[in-house]
Structure formats: structure tokens, C-alpha cells
Design a protein around this nucleic acid. Structure first.
Length: 660
DNA sequence: GTTAGGG
DNA sequence: CCCTAAC
């Protein structure tokens, strides 16, 4: 295949090999810019950069104070500066094998005490670190974007009015940009220049990161504290954690953003399409705290769900909190624990950013630019519904939003290091799962579709009841569906049942009508959704009354006779198998043993948990006695008085409530 | 088919 | 909730 070699090197190969070496200072910019197919774009870049310079000048004279100082201050904790650092080492095949996309975002704190934020800010910018403030009117930010990303800027809409990603890079939101900001008009010029550049390569992973940062999931986090670094990664994976650390160290230096990052591009089984997988092999699997609205047989699917943009922030050490004299919360610092601790400002450092596997079909005739765009769109679709923040404590998800910080065990200095956050795609409410009542990902995806000009009819993605068609061929390829599954374009005519099914699973991302190469892209999630539809189990949390019934039954019957318990207490509950009951009891016992802070999910009344413990202890002892009596019986041939097996069978024995 | 325990 | 060894 003609493209094979290039593809093997991935997107970055274009940059790495085609750009003559130059002094670092020069390379910094050129590397990420003048790719082969983009050479003409440099002209635009220059224009953009020129505009940016003009902008900067005007900014320094007029608007800088307002945009950088006031805005930040007014926004308060919501104002973060983020530096996005990209791994731009030459991409080796190995990298693609690993399929990793790493980028780190480091957010510098806002130090009000020295009042030198803006200087700091620019300094970082000069280091060619992709960055942006989350403030909405920072011209410097947009300049940077224009200059480095070349695709126009993203007004930092922390207020949630940010236009859809896809729209913006299609140049359709220029007006919106103008309206929202850019009093001077200079920026818009730059924007126009950028937007009118060769429409070939809006696909830029950087922008994804940008969008994520723009979406600004962080400021909503109440645990603001000064000088706290938050590390992203995955939640309950020590190894991963340290790996991220290593990575962030390795690629710490300020470097220009790479174009696409590390991705795997695969040749499709058919020669007709390319499949691009921004694949994360070591894509970590977290499980929403172990409680998910559905369970699927395949762990792969099961684990996949929440991994889209899973970021684990880790807090760093707290510096001198006393120095935060300008904060009113300061007075509370002396107080115990959380209130004061959480009132200070926090520094978030996003060490890693991950993108889930993308499933993209690209005609062979596609251009690199269109390929990029397709990736972009797929990613956009993924996160179109927004991002929500998950809170992790000791690597465990804290799900109960209503729980007070102290209740959740987040209160004292010593455990702030254990505090983490995750970024997850989809609406803020439900995790993106197929079988849940609300399929957020689908919804968000659809929402994205609606906001994109679509020349393709939105496919009939069934967001309703799962179509649990078993044994779909690709379902067997749970380990790597993107690899094994032969993609079928939704527009392709393969009149087999399989193709029909898959076509429904594939959601074409609309591309501009002007784009001849109609690319079809779909986030793998779509496929997973489809897949999971086939083999999902709905997770039905035990209600309090069910727990009550279970406890009651166990008290009467004892552990180890789950079938009896099922028949007695859950006879009519078809969805409760004795294995379910046994498992539930297991978790109940566990829950009862752990501290209040460690418990998650719907709280079980302490009274019930106490009974669980009592019953558990009683029947454990009972079992021990039985064992003993057995031995005794064997030895002496006489039944022991503790042998209550028969009585137990008849339900006579009971936990002597309150006596233990 | 049930039970117990690890995943 | 799943899987499976052991009973």
C-alpha cells in the first residue's frame, strides 16, 4: 500500500521527517506546522501570527489588564491557566503499538500575592507551551491558538456557551466569536485568516485537548487549594499512576504540540478503508466506583465505559497556605480541616490526557487533512456532550454528590494528596453506558450531530431499549474490536445482516458538504454501545427493602444456603438469583466492616448493617461449631449438642437478635 | 444445581 | 455482577 509506510509512522511522521532540522528555537514552531501538505499554510500562519502580534500590542496597551487581571480575579477559582504539553518525541512504531496519546496539561496557579500572573502567563507562552486561560477574553490566549494551532481560536467560554467544536473549526462560529469578544477586531482577523486557510487539516489533537481544557471541568471542583497539583491518570492503578509520573517527567520540557499525537493507524482488512485508531492500549479501566448501571459479560466492554477522557488529577503538596493572605478563607485556615483547606486556591496539573479508541473509516482517496478532520470530528462527537468531573479519594470514586466533604473523608491536609479527579465524557448525570435508561453518549453524540451541518442523515441509532441481538460476529472480538472488526461504512452496501447491524452501530460523523471525501467516523464507543446492547445485564441495585429482606432471611436461614434464602425471601424476584443474594450479602458484610467514609453508593441504614454484622458473626460461629461437631462426631461417633443442622434446615435456628 | 470465593 | 472450582 502506498500509504502504508507513512501510516506506520503515524501522523507525526509527516512532521518529523519532512521538516528540515533547524535550531531548536525555530524547530519548535516549524515542527508542528509546516507539514508537507500544509506548506502553503505557513503563509497563513504568518498572517495569523502577524495579526497576533498586532493583537498583542493592542492588548498590552488596552485590554490586558481587563482580560487577564480582572477576569481572572473575578472568576476566582474558576480561572485557571493551563499549559498543555505534548509529547513530541519522534513517534516510533512502538509508540503506535502502545497506542498511546499522552499529553499533559499543567495548570499554573494563580498567585494573587505577587500579582504577577500575567507575566507568568506570557512567560509560559513564550516557551511555546500550548496554553490557554479559561478566561474568556484573553487575547493572548487566542493568539497563541491562532499561531500554533492554526485553526482559529476558541474563545474560552467558561460560562458554558462555548460553541461546538466542530462548528468552530468549520468556521461557522466566526460571528459568534466576534460577538463574544475581540473588541478590537484584530483577533477576528487573525481568526479569519486561520479559518480560511486550506481547509484541509482542522484535525488536530491539540484542539481536543484545548477543548477539554476549555470545557473547564476543573473549576467546578470545590477542592480548591493553593499550590496543589492535580495529576491526571487513572483512578485505581498504582502502576499507571507512576507511569504517568514518569511520562510527565520525560516530556516535561516545553515543547511544541505535535499534530496528532501518538495514534495507531491501521490498515483495514479491506483495502478500501483506513481505520484510524487513536487507540489506547493501556487504556485504563475504571468502573465508576464499581457501581454501574449495567454489567456486561465481557469485562472488556464492562471496563471500557468510562475511560474516554479519564484523567486523574493528583494534588501536589500544599505550600504555604498562610501566604494566601488575600483570601477571605484565610481566617478559617486555622480551623480544623476541610472548610478552610478547601477554600484556598488549587493548582491543577493535568499530567496526562487520554483519548479513547476512535474508530474511523477513511476512504483510500482521502487526504491527510480529511483524515485529520475525521479524527477531529470523531473526538468532537465524543466529547460533544460535555465533560463531567469525577472525584476520587484514595483512588476510589466518591459518587455521592450530596455528601459533605468531611463525610466523604475529605477534610484534612493529610489526605489531600489522595484526592483526585477524573474527566469523563457525556452529560453530567449518567455514565455513558449502553443499557442505562439514558444513553448519555448517544445523546451527546446526537446533540453534536445536530450542531453540525450534516449532509448525512443521522442514522437510526436506537437509543431506546437495547437490541440484545446475541452473537454478533464482532462481539466475539471483545479484546480489540477496532482491529478485528471489519468496518462497514454506513453508506456501504453490504446487504448482509451483519452489515445492517453494524451500519446502525456506525454513526457517521457528518462532514462539510464541500468535502468530497465523505469520511465516516465513529467513536468506538458507538460500537461498544452496540456491542453491549447484545450482552448487557442491567444492574439493579438492591433497594433498602430488599436488603432488609435479605438480612432477615439470612438471620433466619443462615449463610451458605442461598437457594433457600432465594426461595424464601426472593421467590418472586426473578432477577435476583441466589448468586445475586450471596454476592449482595458479601458486599453487605464488607460494607458493614468498613468505615463510613469508605462506603459509597446508596447508603445502607446502619441498623441493617449492624444486623448484617451480627448475623454474619453468628453464622460464622455457627458454622465453626458445626465443623467442630463434625470432627467430634467422627471421633466419638456421637452427635454433638451443637449440631443444629436439622433445626437449621427447618428454619428454627435464628440469630438471637441483640444478643451479640 | 449449589456453594464459595476470586475477579 | 461474572466466572469457576469444588461439592
Amino acid at each position: 500500500m502506498v500509504f502504508k509506510k507513512r501510516l506506520d509512522y503515524g501522523f507525526n511522521a509527516f512532521n518529523v521527517h519532512d521538516v528540515p532540522r533547524a535550531p531548536r528555537s525555530m524547530r519548535r514552531r516549524s515542527q508542528s506546522k509546516c507539514t508537507v501538505e500544509e506548506s502553503q499554510f505557513c503563509a497563513f500562519e504568518m498572517l495569523a501570527s502577524l495579526a497576533g502580534k498586532l493583537l498583542q500590542e493592542s492588548e498590552s496597551s488596552a485590554s490586558s489588564n481587563a482580560s487577564e487581571g480582572h477576569e481572572c480575579d473575578s472568576i476566582g477559582k474558576n480561572c485557571f491557566k493551563q499549559e498543555i504539553q505534548y509529547e513530541d518525541k519522534p513517534l516510533k512504531p512502538k509508540c503506535f503499538e502502545q497506542g498511546r496519546c499522552e499529553a499533559s496539561v499543567a495548570a499554573s496557579e494563580l498567585t494573587t500575592e505577587n500579582g504577577d500572573d500575567s507575566k507568568d502567563f506570557r512567560c509560559a507562552k513564550n516557551n511555546a507551551i500550548l496554553e490557554c486561560t479559561l478566561t474568556k477574553t484573553d487575547p493572548a490566549c487566542s493568539e497563541e491558538i491562532n499561531g500554533d494551532l492554526k485553526y482559529g481560536s476558541f474563545p474560552g467560554n467558561v460560562d458554558g456557551h462555548s460553541p461546538y467544536f466542530g462548528e468552530s473549526y468549520n468556521g461557522k462560529t466566526e460571528n459568534a466569536f466576534k460577538q463574544e469578544r475581540d473588541p478590537t477586531g484584530l483577533e477576528t482577523q487573525a481568526l479569519n485568516i486561520a479559518n480560511k486557510g486550506p481547509p484541509k487539516d482542522p484535525v488536530n489533537f491539540d484542539r481536543v485537548v484545548k477543548l477539554l481544557s476549555r470545557r473547564d471541568p476543573v473549576p467546578s471542583v470545590p477542592f480548591t487549594r493553593r499550590r496543589n497539583d492535580i495529576k491526571l491518570g487513572n483512578r485505581d492503578d498504582e502502576e499507571n499512576f507512576s507511569r504517568l509520573k514518569r511520562l510527565s517527567k520525560r516530556f516535561k520540557a516545553s515543547r511544541p504540540p505535535t499534530h496528532i499525537g501518538d495514534r495507531r493507524i491501521r490498515k483495514l482488512l479491506t483495502s478500501k478503508y483506513w481505520k484510524v485508531a487513536a487507540k489506547l492500549k493501556d487504556f485504563e479501566h475504571s468502573r465508576f466506583g464499581g457501581k454501574r448501571p449495567l454489567y456486561c459479560k465481557r469485562k472488556t466492554y464492562y471496563n471500557y465505559h468510562r475511560c474516554q477522557y479519564d484523567m486523574l488529577y493528583k494534588q501536589r503538596k500544599i505550600f504555604d497556605r498562610k501566604s494566601v493572605t488575600s483570601y477571605p478563607e484565610k481566617d478559617m485556615i486555622g480551623d480544623k480541616c476541610s472548610t478552610a483547606a478547601m477554600s484556598d486556591r488549587v493548582k491543577f496539573s493535568i499530567k496526562s490526557f487520554r483519548i479513547p479508541e476512535l474508530y474511523i473509516e477513511v476512504p483510500e482517496t482521502a487526504t491527510v487533512g480529511s483524515l485529520k478532520r475525521t479524527v477531529m470530528e470523531a473526538v468532537t462527537a465524543l466529547i460533544g456532550g460535555g465533560i463531567r468531573v469525577g472525584l476520587l479519594l484514595q483512588g476510589k470514586k466518591v459518587r455521592d454528590d450530596s455528601r459533605a466533604l468531611s463525610q466523604a473523608g475529605i477534610s484534612c491536609d493529610d489526605n489531600l494528596d489522595a484526592l483526585g479527579f477524573t474527566l469523563e465524557p457525556g452529560p453530567a448525570k449518567a455514565p455513558p453506558t449502553m443499557c442505562s435508561e439514558e444513553p448519555p453518549l448517544l445523546l451527546s453524540y446526537d446533540a453534536t450531530l445536530q450542531n453540525l451541518t450534516s449532509s448525512l442523515a443521522a442514522p437510526a441509532v436506537n437509543t431506546g431499549i437495547p437490541n440484545c441481538t446475541p452473537n454478533l460476529p464482532f462481539l466475539t472480538n471483545s479484546e480489540n474490536p477496532a482491529t478485528d472488526h471489519e468496518p462497514v461504512s454506513s453508506k456501504t452496501d453490504m446487504p448482509t445482516d451483519q452489515s445492517l447491524l453494524e451500519s446502525r452501530a456506525l454513526v457517521p460523523v457528518p462532514v462539510p458538504a464541500t468535502n468530497v471525501e465523505a469520511l465516516t467516523a465513529v467513536a468506538v464507543n458507538q460500537k461498544f454501545q452496540k456491542s453491549e446492547l447484545a450482552q448487557c445485564r442491567i444492574w439493579r441495585p438492591f433497594s433498602i427493602s430488599e436488603v432488609e429482606a435479605l438480612v432477615q432471611a439470612v438471620e433466619e436461614i443462615g449463610t451458605g444456603r442461598w437457594r433457600d434464602i432465594k426461595l424464601r425471601a426472593f421467590e418472586s424476584a426473578d432477577h435476583r438469583t441466589y448468586v445475586n443474594l450471596k454476592d449482595k450479602w458479601k458486599t453487605l458484610v464488607h460494607t458493614a466492616k468498613i468505615s463510613l467514609q469508605q462506603r459509597r453508593g446508596d447508603p445502607v441504614p446502619q441498623e441493617l448493617l449492624d444486623r448484617v454484622l451480627v448475623a454474619h458473626a453468628y453464622w460464622a460461629q455457627h458454622q465453626a461449631k458445626k465443623q467442630q461437631s463434625k470432627l467430634h462426631h467422627h471421633r466419638h461417633g456421637t452427635p454433638s449438642i451443637t449440631d443444629t443442622t436439622e433445626a437449621d434446615r427447618k428454619g428454627v435456628a435464628r440469630v438471637p437478635i441483640g444478643t451479640m
